[in-house]
Amino acid sequence: MTGQTLIHLQDVSKRFVKGKDTITIFDHLGLTIPVGDFVAVMGPSGSGKTTLLNLLGGIDQPTEGAITFDGARVDTLTEGQLARWRAHNVGFIFQFYNLMPTLSAARNVELPLLLTSFGRAERRRRVEAALSLVGLAERASHYPREMSGGQQQRVAIARALISDPKLLLCDEPTGDLDRATADEILAMLQLLNREMGKTIVMVTHDPEAAKYARRTLHLDKGRFTERDLVA
């Protein structure tokens, strides 16, 4: 880790209005994630893990407070600006892989590059490199239904990496996999963090998965319970 801050949440509150009730998820939450960190976020259901991931990924906006990414505010961006920001800065890895079933592995991995100005040849070269990195170069033309869960998650990792984002957000990335395959995927994420310097935030219920992270944050009722980890 360099010590340089990648993400900073300052006094972030998030409230939802449901009927006549207002539900508070976060109340003046603070968090700093340095470049090159690998953070596991654990906590019971309803503790706000997914909401935190949404805020970090620019999928949702805070009700109050500021979110900065690489020194720039992202909580003030419009929907369209956020979409472009996500395309360049964030890679998403989901529990159920979220591959497009009608596209081959290569076409799935290529998706984020379609939002860039790269030409077809450059896109192909990058897709081949990304699939090689996750050990699936020979599976480029296969469709998701022709691959195991572990292979699909590796394709999803290749897709998350293809546009070289600074941040990887993982939502239960091993929740649908057996232990051995889960360990393979986690080892790969660890490698991406240590060798390629990717900053990773991973939501998980699995304490074994959390061990692969550099540190673990415990969320409960919208607050981190290990105060020393909170900025």
């Binding site: 990924g57 999928i59 929907e79 369209g80 979409a83 472009r84 996500r86 395309a87 360049h88 998403f92 989901f94 159920f96 979220n98 497009m100 079933p101 998706l111 984020p112 939002l115 897709r159």
Partner: peptide, 14 residues
Amino acid sequence: AQEIATLRCIGFSG
């Protein structure tokens, strides 16, 4: 819905 949301998440527009 999930495919569409995933594409939006990646950065595709509505």
